[in-house]
Simulated scan of single mutants.
Amino acid sequence: MSPDHGPRRAQVVLVEPALTQLAELTAAETHRLDRAIVAISVRPDLGAPVPGTLLRDYTDPVDGVRVIYYVTSLRTVTIVAYVEA
């Protein structure tokens, strides 16, 4: 019998502007952001749609992070365009 697995995660890719922002974060900020990205990879519908675009905007007020991203049509890859922590 196979083990019970959790939801399938999407692969997460950060584009250049997000990578540049990530390089400026402290270790604590990166850790908080990592939790948000894991949540998005499991549930890409967490963020609110940005009107007129394919983007979604996820803000976690507890950890104080914001991620702007979009999800590929097969929901297998999440592209992160902007991070804030």
Score class of each variant (00 low, 15 high):
R35N: 10
I68Q: 15
L33T: 11
Y69P: 06
D60S: 07
A18F: 01
E24L: 15
A36F: 04
V65N: 00
T76R: 15
A39W: 03
D45T: 12
H31Y: 14
S73I: 14
R75G: 13
V15G: 09
L54M: 12
I68Y: 14
H5K: 03
V50R: 11
G47I: 03
P61V: 05
A28W: 04
D57Q: 02
Q11R: 14
I68H: 13
R56Y: 06
G52D: 08
V83R: 06
R66P: 11
A48I: 01
T59F: 01
V13D: 07
P17G: 01
V71F: 11
E84C: 12
V62S: 03
L25P: 06
V62Q: 00
E29C: 10
V77K: 12
A39K: 06
A28N: 00
V77Y: 05
V62G: 00
E84Q: 12
V38S: 09
P3H: 02
Q21R: 13
R35T: 08
P3K: 02
V67N: 09
L46D: 00
Y58M: 02
Y69D: 12
T53H: 09
P61E: 03
Y58A: 02
L14R: 04
S2N: 05
L25Q: 11
V65L: 03
L25T: 08
Q11K: 12
E29M: 10
E16P: 04
V65E: 03
G6E: 04
V65D: 04
D4F: 04
Q21T: 12
P3V: 02
L25M: 11
D34I: 11
P51C: 04
V67W: 07
P49E: 02
P61N: 05
T20H: 08
L14C: 02
E29F: 07
R8A: 14
Q11I: 09
V42C: 08
V77I: 14
V38K: 13
L54V: 15
S41D: 05
E84W: 14
S73Q: 15
